[in-house]
């Protein structure tokens, strides 16, 4: 009997054979991944990004901060974000964006955007793909100061549109300003912006959703319902094109469930 037990213990378990093949393949892949001193592929690693042997430059500091943000170690992340801007004032823009998008810390974001904009007076500096005025507009909007947000969005949008035309304006910028117009009960202005946004991206669920909201404010319920239906359609129709958990614009999130709930509510009103 003991012999039988022994055989059972010594034999690889057939149930795990598939797992073992997978493990062996992964080990072979890891051997290949270690063929050179290439970049590490996991964020949050302590080995590379938290080592004190790194040189003190803005890029390394920013990477450290990013990795602390990734692991939600906010205390350390804030320390390294501030160090980044101390080493290089040009980093105020991206640090401001971190505080806005990741920390939702609007006062700090505004401080950094202002410091960034002050580096080159009379010029609307760019943060990533957006002018700093637009980023400031998003920050004011998040703080509930819609008037100031409209002012900042307009600084980002109007000169560009006047110089090159509306088609050169990022449609998300029009949407952002429209959201502020809706919040301040100015649906007509919102609709003008959303019209322009829709021309720049014709299949946008985001644009149609906010059109629906603006039209509702004007009591144009039938048109609003069509807009929400279009939003729902675009959302579902474009699902196949999307990878992962898609958002058209992280600063103006729209949720499929939210659209469908609004539509269901409108149907109830019409009964």
């Amino acid at each position: 009997m003991k012999r039988l037990n022994l055989i059972c213990l010594l034999l690889p378990l057939s149930v795990s054979a598939q797992d073992s093949e997978r493990i062996l393949k992964h080990c072979a892949s890891m051997l290949a991944a270690n063929r050179s001193a290439q970049s590490r592929f996991f964020f949050g690693d302590k080995q590379r990004f938290r080592s004190d042997t790194q040189s003190a430059n803005a890029q390394n500091f920013r990477q450290k901060a990013f990795n602390y943000v990734w692991s939600k170690e906010y205390e350390q992340a804030a320390v390294w974000l501030e160090k980044t801007t101390a080493v290089s004032p040009k980093e105020h823009g991206i640090v401001g964006e971190f505080y806005l998008a990741q920390f939702r810390d609007y006062p700090r974001a505004l401080t950094h955007f202002n410091a960034y904009d002050a580096l080159t007076p009379n010029f609307d500096d760019i943060v990533g793909y957006n002018p700093v005025s637009y980023m400031r507009g998003l920050t004011y909007r998040s703080m509930g100061n819609y008037e100031k947000s409209i002012e900042q969005f307009s600084i980002a949008i109007d000169p560009l549109a006047a110089k090159h035309g509306d088609e050169w304006v990022n449609y998300r910028h029009f949407v952002s300003r429209a959201v502020s117009y809706i919040a301040t009960q100015q649906p007509e202005k919102a609709l003008i912006d959303l019209e322009k946004a829709g021309k720049n991206f014709k299949r946008s669920a985001l644009v149609q959703y906010h059109r629906g909201r603006a039209l509702l404010l004007l009591n144009r319920t039938t048109e609003a319902r069509t807009a929400f239906q279009d939003a729902s359609f675009f959302f579902k129709a474009l699902r196949a094109e999307r990878t992962g958990d898609y958002q058209e614009d992280d600063f103006n999130p729209v949720y499929e469930l939210e659209i469908d709930e609004t539509l269901a509510h409108l149907k109830t009103l019409n009964r």
Partner: peptide, 9 residues
């Protein structure tokens, strides 16, 4: 390159 327990080819 193999598994120590011989559970994979």
């Amino acid at each position: 390159l193999g598994m120590i327990d011989g559970s994979a080819t």
